[in-house]
Design a protein around this nucleic acid. Structure first.
Lengths: 142, 142
DNA sequence: GATAGGGCTTCCAGTCACAGGAAGGTCAAG
DNA sequence: CTTGACCTTCCTGTGACTGGAAGCCCTATC
């Protein structure tokens, strides 16, 4: 199977597949003409990779996941630990984005958004203090 | 003021400040010896940039925000629109991450995580179908 | 005057996970 | 024999920096 079909079967761009070969994630055979020849097992691996990437695992995580997948004597605890760590990082990213969203939402809501130049968004960005002035207590409990 | 003090005052790494100059976001003066000489207005800009970046605006957004900030005849609507677009993108990122988190949480919870090789996380990544097998109805309502 | 240190400069490379594009070889159909 | 769809490799660019090398500047100390 040539790369185009492999791309279709695995739902990955051909460019990505070549890249994955370059960094040693897959090792397709080669035809006499130099074309890559993908086996079912290659397609399987590529699909696995695509799904891992879709869950946000880094390439290096994917490399480990793949080796765990192929190691029939793995301990599921190792997989779980890797996934749990990744889950933590996702949580941190979400928290950071939510914090941005909350601040930005306040600012956008406070901006009248008309032809006048006065703008709380810009004022806040230009402020010497951090963020928005607390509504009631500057020593709010955590 | 030299770059180290500018870095402290703006809470930005010196490297970042040099980078911002390179891409034309700030234009500090130069002393006779070639050292950058930061004015108060430069510090002000850098702080503005740091705060904008902390809210997740891209560098190009920051460039626009800065020019709006300096344009005393701007319309607040322009600022609001930029911020609202950014807010949308943050929302999309959060949604994507939450989707990952939900799937991963299910998988991690389903994995017993012991010495045995059997692992629902790997099984799911290796599956031909997408995601997790629905618990009760394969035609669940959206 | 020599030296040590800390700070400053520029320039180059690396990050992450690809995407775009150029130049050129291969293959099946007409 | 040509066309067009494939395929190949190689090089560059992305975003927003970070790290490091090589070398100049300035002040203080011996």
């Amino acid at each position: 199977m040539n790369i185009k079909d492999a791309a279709e079967r695995s739902s990955l761009p051909a460019k990505t597949i070549r890249y994955y070969e370059e960094i040693g994630l897959v090792r397709p055979l080669r035809d006499a003409n130099g074309y890559r020849a993908f086996r079912e097992s290659d397609i399987h691996k590529l699909t696995f990779l695509g799904r891992s990437r879709a869950l946000g695992f880094t390439i290096e995580d994917c490399r480990v996941l793949l080796s765990l997948y192929e190691d029939k004597s793995r301990a599921s605890a190792d997989v779980k630990e890797l996934a749990a760590r990744h889950l933590d990082q996702i949580g941190e990213k979400i928290a950071a984005l939510e914090s941005m969203r909350d601040t930005l939402t306040e600012l956008v809501d406070a901006c009248h958004g008309d032809h006048r130049p006065d703008c709380p968004i810009l004022s806040s960005l230009a402020l010497r203090q951090t963020g928005i002035v607390p509504q009631f207590s500057p020593t709010a409990t955590k």
